[in-house]
Amino acid sequence: MKREDIEAVVIQKLAKAAPGTDPGSLDRDEAYRDALDLDSMDFLRFVDALHEALGVDVPEAHYPKILTIRACTAYLEAVLAKR
Protein backbone atom coordinates (compact mmCIF):
# COMPACT_ATOMS: atom_id res chain seq x y z
CA MET A 1 0.00 0.00 0.00
CA LYS A 2 1.34 3.39 -0.97
CA ARG A 3 1.79 6.19 1.52
CA GLU A 4 -0.85 8.36 -0.15
CA ASP A 5 -3.34 5.52 0.12
CA ILE A 6 -2.62 5.04 3.79
CA GLU A 7 -2.94 8.75 4.42
CA ALA A 8 -6.25 8.74 2.58
CA VAL A 9 -7.49 5.96 4.87
CA VAL A 10 -6.32 7.90 7.95
CA ILE A 11 -8.15 11.01 6.79
CA GLN A 12 -11.27 9.09 5.89
CA LYS A 13 -11.39 7.36 9.28
CA LEU A 14 -10.82 10.66 11.09
CA ALA A 15 -13.71 12.14 9.16
CA LYS A 16 -15.84 9.22 10.24
CA ALA A 17 -14.83 9.57 13.88
CA ALA A 18 -15.44 13.33 13.80
CA PRO A 19 -18.49 13.81 11.57
CA GLY A 20 -18.89 17.26 10.12
CA THR A 21 -15.18 18.05 10.14
CA ASP A 22 -12.73 18.17 7.26
CA PRO A 23 -9.57 16.37 8.40
CA GLY A 24 -8.16 16.61 4.86
CA SER A 25 -7.67 20.33 5.36
CA LEU A 26 -5.50 19.87 8.46
CA ASP A 27 -1.77 20.48 8.53
CA ARG A 28 -0.30 16.98 8.40
CA ASP A 29 1.80 17.81 11.48
CA GLU A 30 -1.06 19.26 13.53
CA ALA A 31 -2.31 17.38 16.57
CA TYR A 32 -5.64 16.26 15.16
CA ARG A 33 -7.30 15.32 18.45
CA ASP A 34 -7.42 18.96 19.48
CA ALA A 35 -8.07 20.25 16.00
CA LEU A 36 -11.02 17.92 15.42
CA ASP A 37 -12.19 17.85 19.04
CA LEU A 38 -11.86 14.08 19.32
CA ASP A 39 -12.57 12.80 22.82
CA SER A 40 -11.16 9.51 24.07
CA MET A 41 -14.22 7.60 22.84
CA ASP A 42 -13.88 9.15 19.37
CA PHE A 43 -10.18 8.36 19.36
CA LEU A 44 -10.79 4.76 20.32
CA ARG A 45 -13.28 4.53 17.51
CA PHE A 46 -10.69 5.94 15.11
CA VAL A 47 -8.12 3.35 16.21
CA ASP A 48 -10.78 0.69 15.83
CA ALA A 49 -11.60 1.91 12.33
CA LEU A 50 -7.91 1.76 11.35
CA HIS A 51 -7.82 -1.78 12.64
CA GLU A 52 -10.83 -2.71 10.60
CA ALA A 53 -9.55 -1.03 7.42
CA LEU A 54 -5.88 -1.96 7.52
CA GLY A 55 -5.68 -4.82 9.97
CA VAL A 56 -3.25 -2.85 12.13
CA ASP A 57 -4.06 -3.01 15.82
CA VAL A 58 -2.29 -0.03 17.40
CA PRO A 59 -1.53 -0.90 21.03
CA GLU A 60 -2.30 1.69 23.68
CA ALA A 61 1.39 2.17 24.37
CA HIS A 62 1.84 3.37 20.78
CA TYR A 63 -0.94 5.95 20.85
CA PRO A 64 1.60 8.79 21.27
CA LYS A 65 3.10 7.76 17.89
CA ILE A 66 -0.07 8.37 15.92
CA LEU A 67 -1.24 11.78 17.07
CA THR A 68 -0.68 13.66 13.80
CA ILE A 69 -1.76 12.59 10.34
CA ARG A 70 1.85 12.40 9.16
CA ALA A 71 3.01 10.42 12.19
CA CYS A 72 0.04 8.10 12.01
CA THR A 73 0.60 7.47 8.29
CA ALA A 74 4.29 6.77 8.84
CA TYR A 75 3.55 4.45 11.73
CA LEU A 76 1.03 2.47 9.73
CA GLU A 77 3.34 2.36 6.72
CA ALA A 78 6.15 0.94 8.84
CA VAL A 79 3.90 -1.70 10.38
CA LEU A 80 2.48 -2.69 7.02
CA ALA A 81 5.95 -2.85 5.45
CA LYS A 82 6.99 -5.47 8.00
CA ARG A 83 4.26 -7.83 6.88
Binding site: S40, M41, L44, V47, D48, H51, D57, P59, E60, A61
Partner: peptide
Protein backbone atom coordinates in the same frame (compact mmCIF):
# COMPACT_ATOMS: atom_id res chain seq x y z
CA UNK B 1 -6.40 -1.24 32.92
CA UNK B 2 -3.31 -1.09 30.67
CA UNK B 3 -2.45 -4.68 31.49
CA UNK B 4 -5.95 -5.70 30.52
CA UNK B 5 -5.99 -3.63 27.37
CA UNK B 6 -2.58 -4.82 26.24
CA UNK B 7 -3.86 -8.31 25.87
CA UNK B 8 -6.91 -7.18 23.94
CA UNK B 9 -7.76 -6.09 20.46
CA UNK B 10 -8.73 -2.45 20.09
CA UNK B 11 -12.39 -3.46 19.86
CA UNK B 12 -12.36 -4.72 23.44
CA UNK B 13 -10.27 -2.00 25.07
CA UNK B 14 -11.68 -0.18 28.06
CA UNK B 15 -11.30 3.56 28.70
CA UNK B 16 -10.77 5.00 32.21
CA UNK B 17 -14.20 6.63 31.81
Amino acid sequence: LSARNEARSVTDRVLPG
